[in-house]
């Protein structure tokens, strides 16, 4: 008779707290909470914009609340964390070749950072200058 009795370990729902790599994965995934919230805030803003000046000003007044500003600082940092993970993983999903040479991972990652920098500068130029 077999004495086999394999023991199966249960993962539970807190597995991601037990390993740093897994914790940072969940931190990455949960950046979607603030990214989702920001999209919804923009959508409400767009709705307010279409509701006329009074509605828009009321929406904007909400944004000037100190708590709202704190929320947006957190949102910005967490979204930037998403960006760094996105850029560093992007080369894995791309198999780009120029002639007989594969485009190096740091070229892809570096280009994405350059685009982020460019978009940010253009955005700020539009906000301040135009």
């Amino acid at each position: 008779m077999s004495k086999r009795k394999p023991y199966v370990r249960k993962m539970g729902s807190t597995w991601w707290t037990k390993n740093n790599f897994h914790t940072m994965y969940i931190v990455r995934e949960l950046s979607s909470l603030v990214i989702l919230a920001y999209s919804v805030i923009l959508l409400f803003g767009l709705n307010a914009l279409r509701g006329g000046e009074a509605a828009f000003d009321a929406w904007f007044a909400g944004l000037t609340n100190p708590l709202a500003i704190v929320f947006h600082v957190i949102t910005l940092l967490w979204t930037l964390y998403h960006a760094t993970t996105w850029f560093s993983l992007a080369p894995k999903a791309a198999n780009l070749w120029i002639g007989e040479k594969r485009v190096a991972d740091n070229v892809i990652t570096g280009s994405l950072y350059a685009v982020l920098g460019g978009v940010t500068v253009i955005g700020l130029l539009i906000a301040f200058v135009l």
Binding site: Y38, F71, H72, V73, T79, A83, T120, G123, L124, A127
Partner: peptide, 19 residues
């Protein structure tokens, strides 16, 4: 979009404009 465009928008609409 979230990695390239969203950061500057958050900076403008959520931080610079309200301040």
């Amino acid at each position: 979009v979230a990695a390239l465009l969203t950061p500057v928008l958050i900076l403008i609409t959520g931080i610079l404009a309200p301040m």
